[in-house]
Amino acid sequence: MRSIGLVGVSVLAILMAGCWGPRVEYGDPLASEPLTTDFGASDLQQIAAGMVDSLLAFPEIVKLTAERQPVLLVAKVRNKTMQHIDTEAITDSIRAKLIKSGKFRFIDRSTDSAILEELILQHEGGHTDPARAVPKGRQYGAEYILYANLAQFEQQLGNKRDVYYKFTMMLRSVETGLVIWSDEKEIRKVATRRWVGL
């Protein structure tokens, strides 16, 4: 009788040891399992995928990219939320997806100072063979600018918290100033505090 009890307790202990206690493991970077209502990695991925799909399927863009690769510049996202969000991560994902589509070419103003420094070094530093120096004045200018806003609306009542995010993106022509494409992606996250473990 006593030994059966011991066996039962041992089996339970083994079962419990597999699930409880500190554990570190690799997670799926593509998973969508929100832990809080804060803006997270899955929200970023959903926004990037939604915006790229919408942009690539827009009839005017399809026409524009049929023959050539227009040059785009991604402006910084205006973060209108109450959270500290790395909005550059959103635009980085969007840019990476658009480059992989082969439909656009991009310029990046955030690395302009490094390029300028290198050009000055090559042409005025006296260490570079003039025949092998990169010629100046041949960079591309942006034809279109992608810019975006991220807004947040929040409601809380009792143990329920409802957070709504709205990401709006636009593509504007540098030449004409016209907004030629715009779309929105909405994400809603609801958290409810539960009092029973299950």
Binding site: L30, S32, S42, K100
Partner: peptide, 10 residues
């Protein structure tokens, strides 16, 4: 194509 490109969407 685009290994690990599209994430799980709720």
């Amino acid at each position: 194509e685009d290994l690990g490109g599209d994430a799980w969407t709720p």
